[in-house]
Design a protein around this nucleic acid. Sequence first.
DNA 1: TCTGGGGTCCTAGGACCC
DNA 2: TCTGGGGTCCTAGGACCC
Length: 434
Amino acid sequence: MFALVDCNNFYVSCERVFQPRLANVPVVVLSNNDGCVVSRSAEAKALGIRMGVPLFQVRPLIEQHKVQVFSSNYALYGDMSYRVMSYLASVVPEVEIYSIDEAFLGLHGMERYLIQPESFAQKVRKQVMRRTHIPTCVGIAPTKTLAKLANYLAKKTVAFNGVVVLDSVERQWWALRQVPVEEVWGVGRQYGQKLRAMGLNTAADLAGCSEAWARKHMGGVVGARLVRELQGKPCHQLHPSEDGTLARKSIACTRSFGRPLSKFDDLLGAVAAFTSRAAEKLRAQDSTAYIITVFIGQNRFGPTPPPYTHSAQITLPAATNSTPDLVRAARALLVRLWQPGLVYKKAGVILDGLEGHGQPQLSLFEQLPEVQRPQSAALMRKLDQLNSRFGPNCVRVATAAVAGPKGTPAPWLGQKRLCSPERTTSWHELWEIG
DNA sequence: TCTGGGGTCCTAGGACCC
DNA sequence: TCTGGGGTCCTAGGACCC
């Protein structure tokens, strides 16, 4: 059995923890650059504000109903997530952190302690609320896909009080009949439309299909597994998260710019800054990478015909996590991509081919000229320590522009006008009482 | 005027090898 | 006219997720 614990409207809930005035009023949190709505309180959903809608499209609605609007505050959300996950890890032996606001708990072998799965789930909800003030819902079922489905029903129907347990075949089929087919985990827009067109309207309709049918119409083994999981036959194992973090297989840093950019040096400033950030994330999970991709993109909503983005990739002679190495490679890629006269709106850096540290590898530095040889690991460790202690970008490579001349913001930096304080991660912004 | 960011897994097709 | 079969690796692209 799996339990899926999902935090309700997580970003909005995080904002509410430190601002009680936000309770029971419509609240939304925006994506980077204050572009789209990515988290909504129940009250905001009731106003018809859709997930992912561009802010400018709902501006009138927001003003009319005095919706409280926040830029995203990832320092706060990341820290609150860590607190929730740490508690969950203390309750069961195995937790898989699935995303910033969701975790699967492995209940295998715990059945003898779980005479009442409902009361176990209610205890978890109550404790998460007491310790973090974050509301959650819990779905319990024999497969991950059914646990997601149970969680969906727990969120949707107030009468269930935040918990749905599907521990019998009868309950599973009852639940499958309640859920529209596009709400099934793994059914997105494309398949949703296709299934509806074929007359399959509920999760139960899909669960009634054969594996062979799913293999043919829903992307091969992915579809076959999906149907099996709906039928209560587990195909997805629990992947327990070691040390309470997620080890990524690729690491990216991509951003839309605050304004369109054309000059090579402006693009380079952005790409170097993104590369530095990606390298920090890489070192934070103690990995190295040997494949780096850079892309730059024009305004995809503008008159430019597709493709809007161009990318280039290189395989490094050896895996590295050194910022100067990676920035040097990124710069070479940008030289290949940048075209004079074009107006760019976005850029990104993606690191692939991640390896854990301690695996044998050749040293890249042996192949570089003497002048380029950094003091490698020790230097990077020091850099990360300084930035952690004195604030992001306190120390950085010279090309990574985070500020323009005379303290103006770097030209690529976007909007973030409505950000709440870093209540839990910055000494300067701690909660003040009295 | 304004339109996010960061991930995963799978498939198909080409190059290449024995 | 005949002109194998199977395996691996790589890349591009699709679909999905939060």
